[in-house]
Amino acid sequence: MEQFLKTLIGDTLLNHVIIAALPLVFILLYALVAIYVEMKMAAHMQDRLAYMRTGWHGVLQPIADMLKLLQKEDTIPAAADRIFFILAPYIVFVGSYAAFAALPFGSSFIGSNLNIGIFYIVAISSLVVVGIMMAGWSSNNKWSLFGALRAAAQIISYEIPSAFAILGVVMIAGTMNLQELSAAQTGGIQHWMIFGGTLSLMKKLIVIPVMLVLFVVYYVSSMAEVNRTPFDIPEAESELVQGYMTEYSGMKFAIFYLAEYANLFAVSAIATVLFFGGWASPFASAMTGPLWSTFWFVAKGMLLVCVNIWLRWTLPRLRVDQLMYVSWKVLTPFAFACVLALGLILVW
């Protein structure tokens, strides 16, 4: 992609801008689709129809919602810390948008082909916590403060098991470059990391259960990191009103919303790359090529997003202490044991 652009317009600044803007366009389009899918899925699970009036089966509703949010009055509480209050949603969004730079969207498109891609994503997405803390603190609302503190505790706690799960995959693949990680999983479904990658058959059989556990650990912690039910305690509508977003309205609220959906895709995409072959086609050499690879990447990511939506509308919410219990006493030991086992298998 980069090469193609260089031949087209030369090595100019515009080139970089286009590369950077593509994920942004993707996020915006994806958010519209995801909101629609979420609402429709939830509605059909709940025996109702959801949007039906705007366009065919309400497909234009997300756009109408966006226009509504744009027109809304952008209120800032009198007692709020103005600078931080205005800055917070953007920092949260930057945190999740920056993660898209290292996501391999296809065999020939990646924002930045970093050698430490996955490491960079784990690091940069921590920026979200800073933004949430700023939002909660600067709102000068006690409920917001509760939400922010809960979010900080939760996201930081759950980064540990998720990092362990990532570590396990990196150990097998021997690379932190997500493009290389995806490329290593081409050649059919049997090469996906969840099935042991390119290890020998003997080792694969031992590794598969470990990888399954690691995937569950990663998926659960990623759900917690993006604050979705059953881990949505920072927002916890019935407890904290709307958590750190309570005082936000209009466009700023929309940006929080957008960041949440972007984050949701980011973690699903990482799970795709780590466990389900990234952009690699499941059918060996069939349906490969740059466009197909992008299709596979987005489709797999969306599938995991849908699983997340499904869980969200089924499960109740955990309590703060139970949430911490799950992280520190269940997921972290399991992830640690899995990494240890993987190390032994690989050395053997």
């Binding site: 939830a42 699970m45 109702r48 039910t229 949505d232 916890a236 019935s238």
Partner: peptide, 13 residues
């Protein structure tokens, strides 16, 4: 009560 605990779907049923 389901909503209070965070489960929205039972409410609609």
């Amino acid at each position: 009560y389901g909503i209070d605990i965070g489960a929205f779907t039972p409410f609609l049923y």
